[in-house]
Amino acid sequence: MIKVWFPASGSPGAMTRVGAALAAGGVLTLALAGCAGQVSRTGSAQPLTSVAAPVSDPQPSSAPTIHPKWRTCADEPTMQPQDGGNDAVPLAHFAGTFHPVAALLCREDTQRRTDGGTDAIAVEDRADDVAALIAALSLPDEPPPSLEPPTGDVPPEAGLICAADGYFTPRMVLLDGQGRWVRPRLPRDSCDKPRAEAAAALGELRWTRVSTRVLGEVESAGAAASGCDQVHTDMVWFTGVHPPGRQGDLAALADDAASVRLCVYRVLASGRDSEKPQGDFVSGRVLPPGRWAAVKRAVATSGKAAACTTPANRFARLETPRGDIYVELDGCRRLVAQGALAADGTSGDTIWQASTDLPALLTGP
């Protein structure tokens, strides 16, 4: 994946509470086709063995529109996060009728609060020194690569092979001196990607914050202070739905004096019937001296997991130096922990019935 970052403040983060992935840092992303869902990791796009046919832009049914006076990102439906840039028009279509003096960018980011928590925010940024950007946006599209293999004296690189990847168009508009606006399309290279000149011009813009709007909470102050994730999967229920192929013994647990973090979650009602329920942070702390030793003994005396179909309302995650342990605090009251090494050298999670005193050890003072 190739990323061209706009200069921006704030740090990227997963927008778990508001149910959307954040496009942190105002980024123009070239994302591998077919890779959707999770926030992606940075990597190199590998060339394919065949030529990717360019994707044509939908032709406007009438002359491009110069919109009336700009209001805000929040007030313009085409500037919302789910927008795919289908209304963007090549800047050349406005030549002679529209003269840009500034650019506005609508994007999402995260922002740390004074209490230590983090919010998802929608921001509007403005750049006024746009001469280089306008010049780059005015460039024509490059012709697509030839489908014919190079022959004769034509160098091998002439038979360009394009990676089958796409990109997300930045939610950007251009303003003229009257406050009117247009949505420009980025000129494409021969592989139907943004031309390097346009990407470079975008990266060099100096953005000034116009407005910031809080969308929702990503991480609570309590989760941040405890070191626990704000949202976590109920791995006991998930393992019960997809049990391990081999139910081995428990692996050796951490020493009695080990530092162990306890995170407690409440299962979200919206996902309680799913095979992978998500839990929202309730409380978290490092176990007091001596508590882990007692918890360890209770885990070690677990028995064979009983058949059960009652989802938990709460579960705990124990972060130990020898792997995480998950415990249902109600419902079936099972636990999932690392299994012992098998004869073939492999290991995996194993599911057990928790001892009756384990939930109390994890919820007591």
Rank of each mutant, 00 (worst) to 15 (best):
Tyr167Phe: 11
Val101Met: 00
Met235Gly: 11
Ala254Cys: 06
Ala254Glu: 06
Pro54His: 11
Ser270Leu: 05
Asn86Met: 09
Leu186Phe: 06
Ala305Phe: 02
Pro156Val: 11
Ser146Cys: 09
Pro90Asp: 12
Arg297Glu: 13
Ala158Cys: 11
Ala88Val: 07
Glu217Leu: 14
Ala103Tyr: 00
Gly345Leu: 04
Tyr326Glu: 05
Ala294Asn: 06
Asp128His: 02
Thr310Asn: 14
Lys193His: 12
Thr239Lys: 14
Gln278Arg: 09
Ala354Val: 00
Gly159Asp: 13
Gly19Glu: 12
Glu328Met: 02
Leu104Arg: 02
Ala312Lys: 03
Ala8Val: 02
Val18Leu: 15
Asn313Tyr: 09
Thr301Lys: 12
Ala312Thr: 06
Met235Phe: 10
Val214Cys: 10
Thr78Ile: 05
Thr16Gln: 15
Phe98Cys: 07
Tyr167Thr: 07
Ala343Phe: 09
Ala307Tyr: 03
Gly13Trp: 13
Val327Lys: 01
Ala127Glu: 04
Gln278Asn: 10
Val299Asn: 03
Ala135Pro: 09
Ala102Leu: 00
Lys69His: 14
Ser259Tyr: 06
Gly303Arg: 08
Ala74Leu: 03
Asp83Met: 03
Ile134Phe: 01
Gly240Lys: 08
Asp109Pro: 03
Gly271Lys: 07
Ala342Tyr: 13
Ala132Lys: 12
Arg171Trp: 00
